[in-house]
Simulated assay, not measured.
Amino acid sequence: MKQKPRIDAVIVVEGRDDTIRLRTFFDVDTIETNGSALTNATIETIRQVQKERRVIVLTDPDYAGEKIRTKLSQALPEIEHAFVLRDDAHDHRGKIGVEAASAAALQHALGHVQTAQAAVETFSWQAMIDFGLVGNKQRRRFVAERLHLGEVNAKQCFKRLNMFGVSEDAVADVLKEWNE
């Protein structure tokens, strides 16, 4: 029997089905938030685990997943983030989320982990406009996929570019690919 790859970090997921899906492909430890019912006790558990191990948030690419991610980011600014894309996280029944993601999509997400930077603006709103990231969903999605920002609207894109310390030059380099 082939041994599953070990993930040394603890992965924060929304629920039991997400844990089951990850354990199908990986030897991994998880903490479940019980969906959007994320409690202060769970946040404290994550805080304690973070003292000993890396902790990566991997929530569904939907409103509830984003809400959980935001709450965790506010409470634990050093937490790491992995994003599975909506297109890569659905099954034949129409279910969208980590529990429906393929092994390749999960491996890709966990291979491109982002860590929040100090609160310094590296990317301006004017640059968002200048680069055509406001009002052009396809262009914004292209940038978000290349920079591993997850599913984002314009406001989320702006916040994540700054949260992860992405420079305007880095976005300009990505957009060179768009123009090819």
Rank of each mutant, 00 (worst) to 15 (best):
T24R: 14
A105C: 13
E168P: 04
G97T: 03
T42Q: 15
E80S: 10
R6E: 13
H112P: 05
C157K: 00
G94Y: 11
D87N: 11
R47H: 11
E66Y: 09
H90Y: 13
D87V: 12
V10R: 00
F131N: 07
I31G: 01
S73H: 12
L106C: 09
A89H: 03
I7K: 01
D62A: 09
T19D: 14
A89V: 04
I11T: 02
G132Y: 05
N40H: 12
F142Q: 07
G132C: 06
S124L: 08
T24Q: 13
R16N: 12
Q138P: 01
E180N: 15
L133K: 03
A103E: 10
Q126F: 08
E180Q: 14
N34H: 14
F25I: 08
M163Y: 02
E145H: 11
E145M: 09
E180R: 11
G94C: 15
R21G: 04
A154K: 05
N40S: 14
L22E: 03
M163V: 04
V49P: 00
Q107W: 10
L72E: 01
D88F: 04
I129F: 09
T122Q: 12
A109Y: 01
H112E: 11
D88Q: 14
R16S: 12
E168V: 10
G150H: 00
R86G: 03
T115N: 06
D27N: 13
V134D: 07
D17Y: 11
H90R: 15
G165D: 06
R6Q: 12
D88C: 05
Q74G: 15
E78M: 11
E180D: 14
A41G: 07
H108I: 04
Q138I: 14
R86M: 10
V49W: 00
K71D: 10
A9F: 04
E66C: 04
I43F: 05
M1A: 08
G35L: 07
G135D: 07
D27M: 12
N153W: 08
V84T: 07
V171C: 05
L85G: 04
P5W: 02
K176N: 14
G15A: 09
V143C: 06
K137I: 11
N40D: 14
V113Y: 00
G132R: 03
V113R: 01
R21E: 05
N162G: 09
Q3Y: 10
E121Q: 15
V10S: 03
S36L: 14
L106Q: 05
T122L: 08
V120F: 10
A103G: 06
V84M: 05
A101I: 06
G132M: 05
T39W: 06
I129G: 03
K2Y: 14
K51C: 10
A64M: 10
I79L: 08
T33F: 01
D18Y: 04
D29L: 10
G97V: 02
V55S: 00
T70V: 10
A127N: 07
Q117H: 14
K176G: 07
E180C: 09
L85F: 09
R47L: 04
Q74P: 00
A101H: 06
I7S: 01
I7Q: 01
V98C: 07
E121K: 15
V10P: 00
P77D: 10
K155S: 13
F158C: 05
D91L: 08
A118F: 12
R140F: 03
A75F: 06
A116M: 08
V134W: 01
K155W: 08
K159L: 15
G97I: 01
A37R: 15
S167I: 07
G35Y: 04
S167P: 07
K4Y: 06
H108P: 01
D87L: 09
